[in-house]
Design a protein around this nucleic acid. Structure first.
Length: 827
RNA sequence: GCCCCGGUAUCCCAACCGGUAGAGGAAGCGGUCUCAAACACCGUCCAGUGUGGGUUCGAAUCCCACCCGGGGCACCA
């Protein structure tokens, strides 16, 4: 146990447990982080930590995230801002339901118990949250507005139902959004995801693809580059053309999408996605019907995992049908294959094997012709490498001799003229599938009426509250448990009054987190999701802090919601999070902590061993915030040692509060003001570890000043110790508060304010000037920081060491950078 | 395969526009205090910045190639 340490200075001891117990009730009373006071004149700032999911108690990851968010929030409070730093719980989701299934616990009870536990832990962890703004997404008062937003979108055609092949997790027995499928596996349980044809609810995020992409410009330099890149990739905008191909024996032409319309003359075959409706239709009237059915069955059995393996050999079936190339009238064979995706573009492609590797692989497997139309010097049919480079077009009629860009422009014009094609944009992004066949979520507020169809639940009947779980079969079985709540599900149609049923699905929990940051501005509003006026006052979020795991999912959905709400006139901004900081993970000996790996470090153990402050400090000091913290590399006992050292300073100060630091020891004052200046700068640029180092430096200076310098009585020492308390309060609030009290002040140190930095104390009396000869350091001079260039050059040239290094050589030139450097360059 | 980020002392990490490689911490070693220890305090050792080349008066920093580690994307036509 190192919870206490004998100081060697009298009987005062740094007793972690006692300090924690002393200040918690005081803070409860003072509520220094309350942000809702109506008469508050301070400028507003909104600092937000991603809210937690209440699965058990807080863990090491939370400890890191909240320690970092706290540094930022507490800093801006010191800086005189009215900081809103709220917390709540992302409380819907599968774990509650799984606990219910496994242990027969009520999801409601399980969830609220966990929330209570986490809340108590956060209080003890001294998070600077505004406790007056707490809510949980599973509160009917909250999800009421999920339903309201859904209906707003429904009425505008942004929420709709369609049948399609959806991602299906056989383990969770529910559908998944594209964003929740990671490398062919379920984001939650890692099962291999399969496809299933189902009718599901979607939100039309694709309508916002361009804005989601283009508005990222506003975030440049304020969000991590990595996240912006991931979002860009995810949206995957590409430009090209749609080209209409006649199919022999089919009334309507079939459209393909291509990014390389310039290679149209090189199309030697045509491929439709095997699992598309078109493939089945084309096969139906063909001798290849039997072969195709067999192939389709095989394709359906292929797991998403295998399908994603691009090294897999190409497979397919010739449908014995022909398409007509609109530019040269050529008759090309139509194949069905699974290398073409049914839900991207139009589900059909023109294959140009000479200039597309996938098409070439396919052509070589089935002995189809390869025709070069862009001369890149090599023959893909021989090398097996398709050429995607630019070059003069050949075998391409009117395009011959043109380069890629010219040819694309020319062919689009030709296609448009003839009405056989046009310029087109495509996205990788798909609409957001939000229905889930699970219990613990927001019921979808739609009533299915046999005569009226999909009828929205009238606003005045919202919220549609979940029926109690008791008596329902929550086990995953592929259909919604809510369907089993017959009394709940059976209702009168709001339109015709006839018997109808409620939609039995619940919403993806990412809907909940897509607007929670708005609700904090007005958490207790019973008549609206929020008062637009309050949102205008507080939003957008000035600083968002959270893990990079949400780089796509949550952040993309939130951006989408914000844009929809902007269109609805409910918010006046386009981007919800002005700045984003991604913190790393806490790992152990190089890998993620997990029970099964046996390297799990329990937060509660660490807290009782070292104290809250030492753990917080360790998290912040471990390295740059976006890097992972390897718990094996940090030294919580070292942190505790530093805190005790800082704390002891407060007890050593013998001057009285309010004594004037002017007239105190100048070098101590300089160290103090330098530390305040540098630490502030470091915090504002998220270099928290550097900020801590600056404080440690100051503590070392003060220790020396007390023991062997101007002494404990010097007012500059008091000034320094108070600065230490304030700076330490960003990271270690208990220690700082106790220091503050020992220095003779009333709580809370959190509200003490950042001391003004005296600029004149940042100027050094003299600096060391390095004198180099040919770039090598030969001498050092003590000079005034304001020394003139000429004077410095003369001083340097007069140096004996320089003369010795020159060894008689003439000076070619002298580079002078006052006051820090002179470089003498010999001939 | 493509793209992004990183590689500095035994370890975790600093180093503003290219300008003294070291701020801070951990570990180690030595000392003061002590009967001894713990604690505390003081001091100290340790790298030339992954490798090779280039630009420059001067490179951890900029450029090129490669190696290693981490992350993202990956049949998206």
């Amino acid at each position: 146990m190192t919870t206490s340490a004998d100081t060697g200075h009298g009987d005062a001891r740094y007793d972690v447990e006692a300090i924690q117990e002393r200040w918690l009730p005081v803070w409860d009373e003072l509520a220094p982080f309350r942000s809702g006071r109506p008469d508050d004149q301070r400028p507003k700032k909104y600092v937000l930590d991603m809210f937690p999911y209440p699965s058990g108690d807080l863990h090491m990851g939370h400890a890191e995230a909240y320690a970092l968010g706290d540094v930022i929030a507490r800093y801006w409070v010191h800086r005189g801002f009215n900081v809103m730093h709220p917390i709540g719980w992302d409380a819907f989701g599968l774990p509650a339901e799984n606990a219910a299934i496994r242990r027969g616990e009520d999801p409601v009870r399980w969830t609220y118990d966990n929330i209570a536990q986490q809340k108590a832990s956060m209080r003890r962890y001294a998070c600077s949250f505004d406790w007056d703004r707490v809510f949980n997404t599973c509160d009917p008062e909250y999800y009421h507005w999920n339903q309201w937003f859904f209906l707003q979108m429904f009425r505008r055609g942004l929420a709709y139902r369609k049948a399609s092949n959806v991602n299906w997790c056989p383990e969770c027995q529910t559908v998944l959004a594209n964003e929740q499928v990671i490398a062919g596996q379920c984001e939650r349980c890692d099962s291999n995801v399969t496809k299933k044809k189902l009718t599901q609810w979607y939100l039309k995020i694709t309508d916002y693809a361009d804005r989601l992409l283009d508005d990222m410009e506003q975030l440049e330099g304020k969000w991590p580059e990595k996240v912006l890149l991931m979002q860009r990739n995810w949206i995957g905008r590409s430009t090209g053309a749609e080209v209409h191909f006649e199919i022999e024996g089919r009334e309507e032409a079939v459209t393909v999408y291509t990014t390389r319309p310039d290679t149209l003359y090189g199309a030697t075959f045509f491929v439709v996605a095997a699992d598309s409706d078109l493939a089945s239709e084309l096969a139906a009237q063909s001798p290849a019907q039997a072969e195709f059915s067999e192939y389709l069955n095989k394709v359906k059995q292929t797991s998403e995992m295998d399908r994603l393996d691009s090294s897999r050999a190409k497979t397919g079936v010739f449908l014995q049908r022909y398409a007509i190339n609109p530019v040269n009238g050529e008759r090309i064979p139509v194949w069905a294959s699974d290398y073409v995706l049914a839900d991207y573009g139009t589900g059909a492609i023109m294959a140009v094997p000479a200039h597309d590797q996938r098409d070439l692989d396919f052509a070589r497997t089935f002995d189809l012709p390869v025709r070069v139309v862009v001369d890149a010097g090599e023959d893909p049919a021989v090398t097996g490498e398709a050429t995607a480079d630019d070059g003069p077009h050949v075998n391409s009629g009117p395009l011959d001799g043109l380069n890629k860009d010219e040819a694309i422009a020319a062919i689009i014009e030709v296609l448009a003229e003839r009405g056989t094609g046009e310029e087109a944009v495509n996205y990788r992004l798909r609409d957001w599938l939000i229905s889930r066949q699970r219990y613990w979520g927001t019921p979808i507020p739609i009533i299915h009426c046999p005569s009226c169809g999909e009828v929205p639940v009238p606003d005045e009947q919202l919220p549609v509250v979940l029926p109690p779980a008791e008596g329902l079969d929550l086990k995953p079985k592929g259909t919604s448990p809510l369907g089993g709540a017959v009394a709940w599900a059976t209702v009168d149609c709001p339109q015709c009054g006839g018997e109808a049923t409620r939609d039995p699905d619940t919403m993806d929990t990412f809907v909940d987190s897509s607007w929670y940051y708005l609700r904090y501005a007005d958490p207790n509003n019973h008549t609206a999701a929020f008062d637009p006026e309050l949102v205008r006052e507080w939003l957008p979020v000035d600083q968002y802090v959270g893990g990079v795991t949400h780089a796509i999912l949550h952040l993309l959905y939130s951006r989408f919601f914000t844009k929809v709400l902007n269109d609805l006139g409910l918010v006046d901004f386009n981007e919800p999070f002005t700045r984003l900081l991604n913190q790393g993970m806490v790992i152990m000996e190089g890998s993620a902590m997990s029970k099964s790996r046996g390297n799990l470090v329990r937060l509660s153990d660490e807290l009782s061993r070292h104290g809250v402050d030492a753990i917080r400090l360790s998290m912040v000091f471990a390295g740059p915030p976006e890097d992972d913290v390897d718990w094996a590399d940090v030294s919580p006992s070292g942190s505790a040692k530093f805190l005790a050292r800082a704390w002891r300073l407060a007890g050593d100060v013998t001057s009285s509060p309010g004594s004037d630091p002017r007239g105190g020891d100048e070098s101590v004052r300089k160290a103090t003001h330098r530390a305040l200046h540098d630490a502030a700068q470091a915090v504002e640029t998220f270099r928290f570890n550097v900020a801590v180092a600056r404080v440690m430096e100051l503590v070392n200076v003060l220790r020396k000043a007390i023991d062997s310098g101007p002494g404990s009585d010097d007012p500059a020492v008091r000034e320094g110790a108070e600065a230490v308390a304030i700076m330490v309060s960003l990271v270690a609030p208990y220690t700082a508060e106790d220091m503050w009290a020992r220095l003779g002040h009333e709580p809370s140190v959190a509200q003490a304010g950042w001391p003004d930095v005296d600029e004149s104390l940042l100027v050094e009396d003299s600096v060391t000037c390095v004198v180099q000869v040919a770039g090598k350091v030969k001498d050092r001079l003590d000079v005034s920081p304001s020394i003139a260039e000429d004077e410095l050059r003369d001083l340097a040239l007069a140096s004996k060491a320089v003369a010795a290094a020159l060894d008689g050589r003439a000076v070619k030139t002298t580079i002078v950078r006052p006051p820090k450097l002179v470089n003498v360059v010999p001939e």
